[in-house]
């Protein structure tokens, strides 16, 4: 799957979980840029992303994400496996 397509699907997950349809995420978005993206919601986001793409991240991998772009990269890598 292309990074662009992944980002599109991620955007949908973000608006669902954060209950905000106006959210637009880009590769450089970080948690502190989006008001609703706190540590509790992050738990839900990760569970939802894993479920949606039918993948599993490692906990260290999640810890190291600095922005949405790195998140997409992780997803892409796991989808290729």
């Amino acid at each position: 799957m292309e990074q662009k397509e992944i980002l599109l699907q991620l955007n949908q997950i973000f608006s669902d979980i954060l209950d905000n349809t106006s959210i637009v995420i880009t590769e450089i978005s970080r948690a502190k840029d989006i008001e609703e993206w706190d540590s509790l919601n992050n738990i839900q986001l990760v569970v939802a992303i894993e479920k949606h793409f039918k993948i599993k991240f490692t906990t260290l991998e999640i810890q190291n994400w600095k922005n949405v772009g790195e998140m997409c990269h992780s997803i892409q890598k796991r989808l290729q496996k």
Binding site: S39, I43, Q44, V46, V47, T59, I62, Q63
Partner: peptide, 15 residues
């Protein structure tokens, strides 16, 4: 139970 949630957030019930 989700080990990830347990280790990172001390949550013992998964979603």
């Amino acid at each position: 139970f989700d080990s990830k949630l347990y280790v990172t957030a001390d949550m013992v019930y998964n979603l």
